[in-house]
Computed example of a mutant assay.
Amino acid sequence: MRFDFTDLNLFRHIVEAGSITHGAERSNLALAAASTRIRKMELSFGTELLVRGRAGVTPTQAGRTLLQHARGILAQSEKLQEDLSPYARGLAGQVRVLSNTNALTEFLPETLSSFLTSYPDISVDLEERLSDEIVGLIAEGTGDIGIVAGTVDIGGLDTFPYRSDRFVLVVPRGHPLAGRDRIGFAEVLDYDMVGLDRASAIQRFLAEKATRAGRALRLRVQLRSFDAICRLVECNVGVGIVPETTVKRAARTMAIAAVRLTDPWALRELHICVRDISALPPYARQLVDHLRANV
């Protein structure tokens, strides 16, 4: 039985993305190489690990068992690297931050920039995840600090208010919807859309909402940033869903308009969550204090 950390990391990414292609991208592997690794793992274990379908892949029972162990092994490996890397690079400490798409793109860049300037001996490992995934990973001790939407169940985690924002529909100024004050997400599904990459946390969230409505997103283009979405919307490629703060900034130079979404999930009260604030290393508590001070 032969496998390595690359195999385990690849398998985790494939299952979480629901796609071998997107799992390979997250692992920085070519699709052919990723497929070969999975086949070798299945031959090594003597059983299929994935059910392959037109809509993507799902783990078999054996695959779910492997995923559970892979997460534990990788978490221990990452913890070992995190604990030793400060000594190797001369850093005082490293903080792992898990954030949803909204906070990561709109609020964290400036806040983290000022923090890292003030604390040059601390490094930050920042990863984008869905809010419910973040809660589970923080509870497991996989991450130090999470930034999540207030709509998820925080459980027994320590939480602190962070920021507020709202997802809105962005349309070209001449679009038929540009004169609307508000709209429901179900009606938005009638239009061609511009969105983030399907593997992104917010795009997976919107796809799930569409599925629950018995519909599918009519995505014409997938991009890497909310600003890029606004630019393509301005060019009449489709409509998009982005944070209101993004539209306010982009509308200064782009011919776009925002329409408020009526769905409850559109309002994003963001929270900082940690497993136990008193148990965090001093450098991680410094980052929590910095985040709370910059609201």
Rank of each mutant, 00 (worst) to 15 (best):
Q76H: 02
S77K: 07
S77Q: 10
S77D: 04
E78A: 15
E78D: 15
K79T: 04
K79G: 01
K79V: 01
L80E: 12
L80Y: 00
Q81W: 02
E82P: 05
E82N: 10
E82F: 10
D83S: 14
D83R: 13
D83C: 06
D83L: 12
L84Y: 06
L84W: 10
S85N: 11
P86G: 01
A88K: 09
A88G: 05
R89K: 15
R89M: 12
R89Q: 12
G90D: 01
G90F: 00
L91Q: 08
L91P: 00
L91R: 11
A92W: 03
A92R: 13
G93I: 01
R96Y: 05
R96M: 08
R96S: 09
L98P: 00
L98I: 01
N100T: 09
N100K: 07
T101M: 03
T101A: 13
T101F: 00
T101Q: 11
T101I: 03
L104H: 11
L104V: 04
T105P: 00
T105W: 03
T105N: 13
T105L: 11
E106H: 07
F107I: 09
F107E: 11
F107V: 12
L108N: 04
L108H: 05
P109Y: 14
E110G: 08
E110S: 15
E110K: 14
T111L: 15
T111Y: 03
T111R: 14
S114E: 15
S114F: 01
S114L: 12
F115M: 05
F115E: 06
S118L: 10
Y119F: 13
Y119K: 15
D121M: 13
D121S: 13
D121G: 11
D121W: 04
S123L: 10
S123G: 12
S123Y: 04
S123F: 02
V124W: 00
V124L: 15
V124P: 01
D125K: 14
D125P: 03
L126Y: 06
E127S: 10
E127W: 06
E127N: 09
R129T: 04
R129W: 07
R129N: 13
R129M: 15
S131Y: 05
S131A: 08
D132P: 01
V135P: 09
G136Y: 07
G136D: 14
G136V: 07
A139C: 02
E140Q: 14
G141A: 07
G141W: 08
T142G: 04
G143P: 00
G143E: 01
I145R: 00
I145E: 01
I147A: 07
I147N: 04
V148N: 09
V148C: 09
A149D: 15
A149W: 04
A149N: 14
G150N: 06
T151Q: 08
T151N: 12
V152F: 03
V152N: 07
